[in-house]
């Protein structure tokens, strides 16, 4: 059994992480928070040049020629870094919309009764007529509500799961970092069992979701994807909540990044294919 990352996949993950740390580090993140709704076109083109959108296009068509497992690793890193923008929609449009693959065209899509980044996009997939803006809870994701949600695209569901996995892993790291360094009662709070157990549960949820997400990337089976999404949504949303709790009062501030992870996890969890949809899909498969 060789269900683990290959050397190439490790290198790809490290490459994406390195690129995002350089081009979208903490300063850039906080700068983006300060100017909501503005999409960094230069960063978008950099992502395009790096092959983020063309990752799964055949090399003959100017793509990178890789598969879903590699796309999942790249989206996990994007989720980890809280990279803003309609990443999934543009990635999915890379084969059909001119300029999308190179990061010159920004593509948004109707997903789960919402459209992310509608006004910043050059092209919108799905019927966005009658879209109404809402005051987005996530400062890094402008949102419009649309009347009729469309059916989910399994690849979009999976890539969302990958982004959620990135959040799940990152909030576990943040919680552990805080628990190791923050001292109360004369010792790091991470020495208290109650805090240790919250951190342990963060890891357990993230690692269980990781196995499900990576496996779904290999099989591309709709039921595996639905399962991966349910686990990843849970790992991200509950993980961000627990991370916030571990941070104590600091977790409730605008200054700490924890709320950005929680809010983004909430936004992604509303995309099509999660929660009731995923559970009903799996129940139907069970009953067959």
């Amino acid at each position: 059994m060789r269900f683990r990352l290959t050397d190439d996949q490790r290198a790809l993950r490290a490459g994406v992480r390195d690129l995002l740390e350089r081009r979208f580090g903490r300063e850039a993140l906080r700068a983006a928070v300060a100017v909501p709704g503005r999409l960094d076109r230069a960063l978008w083109r950099t992502l395009g040049e790096a092959g983020f959108f063309a990752l799964r296009l055949p090399e003959a068509d100017g793509g990178v020629g890789l598969g879903l497992p590699e796309a999942v690793l790249a989206f996990e890193e994007a989720g980890r870094a809280l990279l803003p923008g309609p990443l999934v929609a543009t990635h999915l449009a890379a084969g059909g919309v001119p300029g999308a693959a190179r990061g010159e065209t920004v593509v948004a899509a109707v997903d789960g009764g919402l459209v992310e980044w509608l006004e910043a996009a050059d092209v919108v997939h799905g019927d966005a007529s009658g879209a109404v803006p809402l005051r987005s809870v996530d400062p890094l994701t402008p949102l419009h509500r649309v009347p009729a949600p469309g059916p989910p695209d399994p690849v979009a569901v999976l890539l969302t799961a990958a982004e959620q996995l990135g959040t799940a892993g990152r909030v576990c790291e943040l919680a552990v970092q805080h628990a190791r360094t923050r001292e109360q009662f004369g010792r790091p709070v991470g020495a208290f069992q109650a805090v240790q157990h919250l951190c342990a549960d963060l890891l357990v949820r993230a690692e269980t979701a990781r196995a499900a997400v990576y496996a779904a990337a290999v099989t591309a089976d709709p039921a595996d994807i639905a399962a991966a999404r349910l686990l990843a949504d849970e790992a991200a949303v509950r993980g961000a909540r627990d991370c916030l709790q571990v941070h104590g009062g600091m977790g409730f501030t605008w200054e700490a990044d924890v709320h950005l992870h929680l809010k983004r996890a909430w936004v992604r969890a509303r995309r099509a294919g999660g929660s009731a949809e995923g559970e009903e899909l799996l129940a139907a498969a069970l009953a067959r």
Partner: peptide, 30 residues
């Protein structure tokens, strides 16, 4: 639907546990 969804959620859970088993076995193998 509450029961149905509960069973669907458990299916996701055990699919994931099976994959985690395969992951751990692969790690042990390596």
């Amino acid at each position: 639907p509450v029961l149905r969804r509960r069973l669907g959620r458990l299916d996701a859970e055990f699919r994931a546990l099976w994959r985690l088993t395969q992951w751990n076995v692969s790690e042990a193998e390596a």
